[in-house]
Amino acid sequence: MATRVPGPLTLQETPAPERQVVASVQGLTRRFGERTVLDRLDLEVARGEFIALLGRSGSGKSTLLRALAGLDGEAEGGLSVTGSVAVAFQEPRLVPWKRVHANITLGLAVPNPKENADAALAEVGLSERAGAWPLTLSGGEAQRASLARALVREPDLLLLDEPFSALDALTRITIHQLVLQLWSAHRPSVLLVTHDVDEALLLADRVLVLDAGRIAHESVISAERPRHRDHPDLTSLRTTLLSALGVSPEGTS
């Protein structure tokens, strides 16, 4: 695997020299008619790293994720993913006519799909809802099921498209913890698309800010997890990220 060559916009060099690259994007461009949503974007995702991709709406973050998920056939440029990819979407997108366990095993090509599904559901704390219809789940339960469906595939790259944005604040905190737990247990590379700066600060190794179709800012967070919101490193980084997003930080104007 190629070692990482820092791009022109990289602000901080990441420390690990021998990195295995799971996904690599070179000069990716995506246009919708006249509008250029991704503009010659470069990105490398190392094995096991947790990346948060921040950006205002319309900055192209979901477009990048869709390209990585193989859902966009019209993006131009280089894109290669080593290994398997799984996606959890903003809306859980469970298949409503399949019970929860059947949603988990859908398309799962392993010898014992049922056992794997049970294990995955246990891991996200949803064992007792295995036989339920998706439409009877709460928002948090549905999102857990969606995570279980992604994780049961043991992906090398897990793509999370704002999966927590529709959850209430309390549920979101528990799901954050769950995601970290699952990530440390399975160690997939994670690309989390979000517009929530705090979420990015709490979860990610590396935070990227997407603007006008390019990566406009990159920060590496080395603080130990679990992180506290008021950690001094995070506080200063929050200000930096917010201004990179074009938002003036709280308290100043």
Partner: peptide, 11 residues
């Protein structure tokens, strides 16, 4: 959207 899910699940 469900068809997209099916694609990401490898169906």
């Amino acid at each position: 959207k469900l068809a997209e899910v099916a694609r990401t699940l490898g169906l």
